[in-house]
Amino acid sequence: MRTMELPSIQVNHADRLFACRQKIEEAVHEIIFSEGLMEFSAAEIAMAVADIADDYILTIAKQKSATH
């Protein structure tokens, strides 16, 4: 996969999440299809990555609610 150069994105720009996804998608695919994790299916690894991300989002939400 070839990495695409992206223009600088303003902090509040509506496409910031999309730009972030473009930047990390290749790395996530490398994790999901890693030969070092062959004892797990690609679907299991993808679900684990999603679960880790979900846990992180919940942690951020708790931190933000505690400071408001």
Rank of each mutant, 00 (worst) to 15 (best):
L6W: 03
A43Q: 13
L17A: 15
A61M: 12
M47L: 14
A48T: 06
S34P: 00
K64M: 10
V11Q: 13
E39L: 09
E35G: 14
I24S: 05
A46H: 08
A66T: 10
M1P: 06
M1A: 11
K62S: 13
I9K: 07
I9H: 09
E25N: 06
E30T: 05
A48K: 09
A66H: 15
A66M: 14
D51G: 08
E39P: 10
M38N: 02
S8T: 06
R21I: 06
K62T: 02
F40W: 11
H68A: 13
N12H: 10
V11S: 14
V49R: 01
F33T: 08
R16V: 11
I45H: 02
E35P: 10
R16N: 12
Q22H: 13
I32K: 05
A27M: 07
L58H: 13
R16Y: 10
C20P: 00
A50I: 04
Y56P: 00
F40N: 00
G36S: 04
V49T: 01
M47K: 14
Q10C: 04
A42S: 07
K64A: 06
A46T: 06
V49M: 03
I9C: 15
L17I: 05
I45Q: 01
F18R: 15
I31A: 05
Q10Y: 15
T59Y: 12
E25P: 00
D54T: 09
A53R: 14
M4P: 07
L58R: 15
I45V: 09
R2P: 13
I60D: 01
I24G: 04
T67W: 13
R21E: 01
K23G: 08
S34C: 04
D15Q: 15
S65W: 08
T59E: 13
F40Y: 15
A27L: 04
A53L: 10
L17C: 06
S41A: 04
N12F: 10
T3E: 12
M4N: 14
L6Q: 03
L6V: 02
A66Q: 15
Q22P: 03
A46R: 13
K62Q: 08
D54K: 12
I60W: 05
A27K: 06
M4T: 11
E30K: 14
T67D: 12
A42I: 01
H29V: 00
A19F: 04
F33Q: 05
Q22D: 01
M38P: 00
D54V: 02
E39D: 14
I60F: 02
D51T: 13
H13W: 07
Q22E: 09
I60M: 10
I57P: 00
A19C: 03
M1L: 08
S34T: 00
T67Y: 13
I9G: 01
L37N: 05
I52S: 12
D55W: 08
K64R: 10
R21A: 05
S65H: 12
T59H: 12
P7F: 02
L6A: 03
E44W: 11
E35T: 01
A48N: 07
Y56G: 02
Y56D: 00
K23F: 04
A66E: 14
M4F: 10
R2A: 05
I52R: 12
A48M: 06
Q63F: 10
V28E: 01
A53C: 09
K62E: 07
T3M: 06
S34H: 08
E39M: 08
Q63L: 08
I24P: 01
A61C: 09
R16P: 07
T3I: 03
A50P: 03
I32Y: 02
I32P: 02
F40E: 01
